[in-house]
């Protein structure tokens, strides 16, 4: 009962209430939303802990089993350890000052960055994370060009239509097209504003109806996969 019935009952009551709550502008109704968002924020804090545990656990298993590429898992541990250590050292220093009767206040513990130890985190961010992320993303330009060449072929009528539309939009988005003829970017805009929009709307409405249906299934206890188990 505790594993199934109670969670389903909670989902039913809370789910139904927040559907109704959206349409009730009274103060007590708004307060219940504020309370719920506060609970959700607390839960999110635990989700971070869960995420950290999951990351550490997955990579620990890879290292223990000596799976191919387990060296990268060691790098994950190294990066995590160094970043957390550099971030924590400043906080420990502040805590020590506080205990020793220094001037640190609670607000100091929320400080991002700073001139002392925490600048190590800034250094990692600026000189490791930033260039590494930008490099990974920049490489996409090469892969996209290669993939477009190898796969973008007019094998069927549908593929040909997609190809022509994509070429027009791509060229219409390039400033050079306007220099050749103003009609090219205008036609590209027309493709975006009508055929693209119609399809996007259909997908958006379909996805949203699917979300409504899934939410109702959860509220009424039909969908129970979120409870785990079989």
């Amino acid at each position: 009962m505790l594993k199934r019935t109670v969670p389903v009952a909670i989902a039913f009551v809370v789910g139904l209430w927040f559907v109704i709550q959206y349409f009730v502008p009274a103060g007590w109704s708004q307060q219940s939303l504020t309370d719920a968002t506060n609970w959700a924020k607390i839960l999110l804090g635990f989700a971070y802990i869960l995420g950290l545990y999951s990351l550490v656990h997955v990579h620990w298993l890879r290292i223990r089993r000596r799976q191919p590429g387990y060296g990268y898992s060691l790098l994950v541990y190294l990066g995590l350890g160094v970043t957390v250590a550099l971030g924590m050292v400043g906080e420990v220093e502040k805590a020590w000052n506080l205990l020793a009767g220094g001037s640190a206040s609670f607000a100091d513990f929320q400080t991002y960055g700073g001139p002392n130890w925490t600048s190590g985190v800034d250094w990692i961010y600026t000189y490791v994370l930033y260039p590494a992320s930008a490099t990974m993303f920049s490489i996409l330009a090469f892969f996209i060009a290669s993939a477009a060449y190898r796969t973008f072929r007019a094998r069927t009528l549908e593929a040909a239509l997609l190809l022509v539309a994509a070429a027009i939009v791509m060229f219409g988005r390039v400033p050079l097209s306007a220099a050749i003829d103003q009609a090219i970017p205008q036609f590209a805009d027309w493709i975006m504003a009508y055929p693209n929009m119609a399809v996007k709307r259909a997908i958006l409405i379909g996805v949203t109806l699917g979300m409504v249906a899934t939410s109702l299934r959860i509220i009424f206890g039909i969908e129970r996969a979120y409870l785990g188990g079989d």
């Binding site: 330009a141 060009a145 477009a148 190898r150 973008f152 190809l163 070429a167 791509m170 988005r173």
Partner: peptide, 18 residues
Amino acid sequence: TVAHMVVIALIAICNLGY
């Protein structure tokens, strides 16, 4: 702009070859 033109040219070349 030039990179986009290269991608468009590559798509045209591959379809011509196809």
